[in-house]
Amino acid sequence: MLIRSIGAVFTGALALSASAVSAPVAHATETGVIIQKLSVNGGKPIVLGTSQTESFTISVTASDDSGISKDLAFLGIDREVGNDYWSYHGTPKCTAVNATTSTCTLTFKLDSGWGVPRNTLAGKWDVTVQLQSKDGDFYNNGGATKHSVLRRSTLSVNAAPEPVAKGKPITVTGKLARANWDKRVYAGYTNQPVKLQFRKAGTTTYKTVKTVNTNSTGNLSTKVTAAADGYWRWSFAGTSTTPAVNAAGDYVDMR
């Protein structure tokens, strides 16, 4: 049986299961509606952790000779992988910019009733925009626009001993973890390359010293030689399901 889960929708939007609502069907007919701008989360990936305080916004500015109607306006973002499906969708608030142009905006906020999707759904989601002009022209992009929805990552660092004698070894440890949406906890991200970087005191740029892979629990550990005062950090470049993250630098004083 196909399992269909539905995400949270806020500010006037309606959240329904897929069995109760059908996504708008794309129309191939010509339309006079012109999309001037589409913004999903301000152009940044949607990054969700495990809490119920996450939120993001979809906004579209469109125009037509007759103006944009508030009727049939619909904004949504969804993904289906195998038997897993999730959707954040609803009716946006449309505000006229002038006689021909309107901006329609919808803010989505997770709450205790809905929450985050399944782990399998991290990646590129389909963004659906449906609008109608006042003279009846219908626009639907059919979910052609893609946008990333990712599992939030965390990265820690500890460099010791502090202080350290020049030429002596420093052990730098840390852990790379990411949100497990299925269990709503953070778990170690295993077998991932993470760069160890150093920023000399008085400078502003980190330089990569080496790359270390996380172990079976997401932990990192390596040894380096103390050569100068400065900050040590781990830096993760990210993947298609998990965003990049840098640990805060840990200062080591050399004596």
Rank of each mutant, 00 (worst) to 15 (best):
L196Q: 01
D229M: 10
A228G: 10
K195W: 07
K146V: 03
Y189D: 02
D182P: 11
F236K: 10
N140M: 07
W181H: 03
Q197W: 05
S156W: 07
G230F: 01
H147D: 07
K195T: 04
S235Q: 12
G188P: 10
L150C: 15
Y186N: 08
K210G: 03
L196V: 11
T217E: 10
T154V: 02
N180S: 09
K210W: 02
S240C: 10
G142V: 03
K223D: 05
K210V: 09
G188D: 03
G230V: 02
A159R: 02
R199Q: 12
N213G: 09
R233F: 03
G230E: 03
A160Q: 07
G174L: 12
T208A: 11
A226L: 04
G202Y: 07
V224S: 05
Q192W: 15
S216R: 14
T205C: 05
K183W: 04
G143T: 00
P163D: 03
V212S: 07
S221E: 12
T205E: 11
T171N: 11
P169L: 00
S221V: 12
F198Q: 02
F198E: 01
S221Q: 13
R151D: 08
V224I: 12
R233S: 02
T145Y: 05
A144F: 10
S153F: 05
P161R: 00
T208W: 09
N158V: 13
A165G: 09
E162R: 04
F236H: 04
W181N: 04
T154I: 07
Y231T: 02
D182H: 10
I170R: 01
G174H: 04
R152F: 13
Y206E: 06
T203V: 12
N180K: 02
A144W: 06
K207S: 10
V212A: 14
T203Q: 09
V212G: 01
G167N: 05
V194F: 12
K195Q: 15
V157Q: 04
T225D: 10
T205V: 14
V185T: 15
H147R: 10
N215D: 15
R184W: 11
K223F: 12
T205D: 04
